[in-house]
Write a protein that binds this DNA or RNA. Structure first.
Lengths: 201, 201
DNA sequence: TCTTTTATGGTTCGATCGAACCATAACACG
DNA sequence: CGTGTTATGGTTCGATCGAACCATAAAAGA
């Protein structure tokens, strides 16, 4: 019938403006007018594609989440098909560090949303899904490595997986705050992996 | 000469209102009017004691920091004078978990400030001091324990200290988000300490 | 070519924001 | 008992906010 537009592209364009503003000044800078200006569209369009501001924040987060998942899977696949178990675990952990602008911005946006996660159940559902899934994934990888002898058999796989991921998250904060060098954070992770995995083939 | 007031008490009263609002809805809810209402004073008084909103946020954070430090020292001292090294390290780590309302609120407030730490240098200075100091402290404790034989001698004290603290910070997020039980987080920390420290006396 | 529906811009409204300003009640001291 | 200073409340201003509303340009199908 009429004038068709690429809704997904428009929503992404607007969401990216939300991300930039949130990373720059927190959610309080994510005002409808500022997002519109940053995205180069009229404020009316934000209403058209997202509705209210709360739903804009929710929608922008959903797109960010989908993006993060896709990019992470892409990067893990990029390790090569015959990547060792240790390399896979390392890849998952490094995904949580701000090793490039893309990851850094994404992680800062998550930080900007954090308090809201604690209050708005709709956002909490979107945010809370990732971490437990990663924990199961890493646990499974360590268990597999224990079976093949790549990892020490006398350690608690689930506990180590949880602490590895928690540590990566903590290192993320330190690097973002400029308290810690990114390279040094990676080195710390590698040292923990040295402890868990035995022979490097 | 005239009508004296306890400035420190007033500033604290106002700062506590800031904390409550920030923990409840993030910094965007910390508006002069809402803080005034929450503290039970007029908005004029916020200007009188803190000046602009930026300086209110800075002042409230400074008081929070001083509070955190004092309470942590208090709690560590409460472990007893002859507390073992492992117990001290454990105490430091547990201070980063939301094990009671006080710690939980404080940690949520820090989260609310986080993005601002990355942007405003004045806030970054206040926030960034704690973590490196804790890292040196824990490193020193582990080194001491290695000398006395309480800790395994073949591990990198600084690296383990850094990863312990980072892990505690990551566990903090998980507990705050309700993804992880607080008791389970403590158990995970204890398991890491089992690995680092040898004999429990 | 003419609809008819969609995508988009612009304007407006009531509320609220931060900050400046105006007032005055309380009180220590002469 | 004044009296001068401090601590506090209230009001106002211009700006901005989120949301609703009004308009219209574009284009797909008749």
């Amino acid at each position: 019938m009429p004038r068709q537009a690429d809704h997904d592209a428009r929503r992404r364009q607007i969401a990216e403006a939300v991300w930039r503003l949130a990373a720059r000044g927190g959610l309080e800078d994510v005002t409808l007018r500022q997002v519109a200006a940053e995205a180069g569209v009229s404020a009316r369009l934000l209403q058209y594609y997202f509705g209210t501001r709360d739903r804009l924040l929710l929608g922008a987060l959903e797109i960010l989440n989908a993006d993060a998942e896709a990019r992470a899977a892409e990067r893990l696949a990029g390790l090569g098909e015959a990547a060792g178990t240790r390399a896979l675990v390392r890849g998952v952990l490094l995904e949580m560090l701000p090793l490039d602008e893309e990851r850094r911005n994404r992680q800062v946006v998550y930080a900007a949303y954090f308090v809201r996660f604690l209050v708005e159940p709709a956002l909490a559902a979107v945010a809370g899904a990732a971490t437990p899934a990663l924990e199961e994934l890493v646990t499974g990888l360590i268990v597999r490595a224990q079976h093949t002898g790549e990892a020490r058999g006398d350690l608690d796989a689930a506990g180590e997986a949880a602490y590895l991921l928690a540590g990566a998250e903590g290192l993320q904060s330190g690097v973002l705050l400029g308290q810690r060098d990114a390279d040094r954070a990676v080195a710390l992770i590698d040292r923990q992996l040295d402890r868990i995995f035995t022979a490097t083939t």
